[in-house]
């Protein structure tokens, strides 16, 4: 069904390397491979979850999609037009249509500014609202995110973390965006508040037909809000599937380990079989050859060290994609595990 629609944004072969500078006369001695060739599409109205452990490059992808950073290689296409081929006016369109919600609600608002000012200046600058209407517009935004009208005269320190995150969302919504990059928007909040914020994001999505790229490392939150989920490991997507499919039928050994690491609040499930990974996460300064996961994979074969696997459908025509050399050879990792 998703295949028929035109994607809103496409990430094509995205790579981002950060130079490592060292020495008495500083010079580039190597690169941090933050993102290592990532492709995916974002369809209008969907939520794509991006999960992976810290440092796997998920935030870097989000920052590049929000045009905070430029890719080292590859391109980001929005509505059929790559960022790099856009004029100044075209980039202005990106600046209003793609917004971001940040992780830390305590630094995402200027402590010296009233909420009214934080929300109104960007709207006035981009001409989304006029001076006559600005009061009404700010009220409407605050109402949308469930905050009282009198919030607008207050300073950020008068709000709790959850309320601040609501203001952060209001700020992201203020320019009428179509795509919002949510960079771990709930991981700094209490669990009870997390649910409120997730529900708010969901309601807003339905109401305003928003598209989300939802970055997170809490599996539950990502599972709750996402239509599709991409699992990342060391700067690459290792598996991408519909949310339910991914959790019920994880194919890639890393996804399996990730799913089994999430605690299940059920005493009966105490004895479930866990996939526990051996070894440490390799440095992204010098990447393992072949499949990046081979050094920790319980099913790794000699082949894995050599060939870099592509993200391919698990079954022909399936939307469930995985990147595993064993899988590519037609050998199902699960059967190996049972043997």
């Amino acid at each position: 069904m998703q295949k028929e629609r035109q994607p809103l944004a496409e990430i094509k072969g995205l790579k981002k390397y950060y130079p490592v500078r060292d020495g008495i006369i500083p010079h580039t001695v190597g690169f941090i491979h933050a993102v290592n060739g990532v492709d995916f599409e974002l369809y209008p109205g969907e939520t794509l979850g991006l999960v992976g452990e810290s440092g796997c490059g998920k935030s870097t992808i989000g920052r590049q999609l929000a045009a905070l950073e430029t890719p080292t290689e590859g391109s980001i296409v929005y509505e059929g037009q790559p960022f790099t081929e856009r004029s100044a006016a075209g980039m202005r369109q990106i600046r209003t249509q793609i917004q971001m919600v940040f992780q830390d609600p305590y630094t995402s608002l200027n402590p010296k500014k009233r909420i009214f000012d934080t929300l109104s200046y960007p709207m006035l600058y981009h001409g989304v609202s006029t001076r006559q209407n600005i009061n009404k517009e700010v009220d409407r935004l605050l109402d949308m995110v469930g905050l009282p009208k009198n919030s607008k005269g207050r300073y950020p320190h008068e709000f709790s973390g959850g309320q601040r995150q609501r203001i952060g969302i209001a700020r992201a919504l203020s320019l009428n965006p179509r795509l919002i990059v949510c960079d771990e928007p709930v991981s700094a909040l209490d669990v009870s508040i997390q649910a409120q914020i997730l529900n708010l994001l969901r309601d807003l999505q339905r109401e305003l037909k928003l598209t989300y790229l939802f970055i997170g490392h809490g599996l539950d939150a990502v599972k709750y809000i996402s239509d599709r989920i991409a699992v990342m490991y060391l700067g690459k997507i290792v598996e991408l599937a519909d949310a339910r499919e991914l959790f019920e039928n994880p194919v890639h050994p890393y996804t399996q380990a990730l799913c089994s690491a999430a605690p299940i609040p059920d005493p009966e499930a105490r004895d479930r079989k866990r996939v526990i990974l051996q070894g440490e996460l390799p440095s992204n300064k010098d990447m393992p050859s072949g499949c990046h996961f081979h050094s920790r994979c319980p099913y790794a074969v000699e082949e894995c060290k050599r060939s870099e696997p592509a993200l391919i459908p698990v079954r022909p025509g399936s939307g469930h994609l995985a990147a595993c050399p064993v899988l590519a050879q037609g050998r199902w990792p699960k059967e190996d595990a049972n043997a």
Partner: peptide
């Protein structure tokens, strides 16, 4: 480096 400045940059503020 604080996130509210990054928010401004995402929103293309001058």
């Amino acid at each position: 480096e604080m996130t509210f400045i990054q928010g401004d940059r995402v929103a293309g503020m001058p």
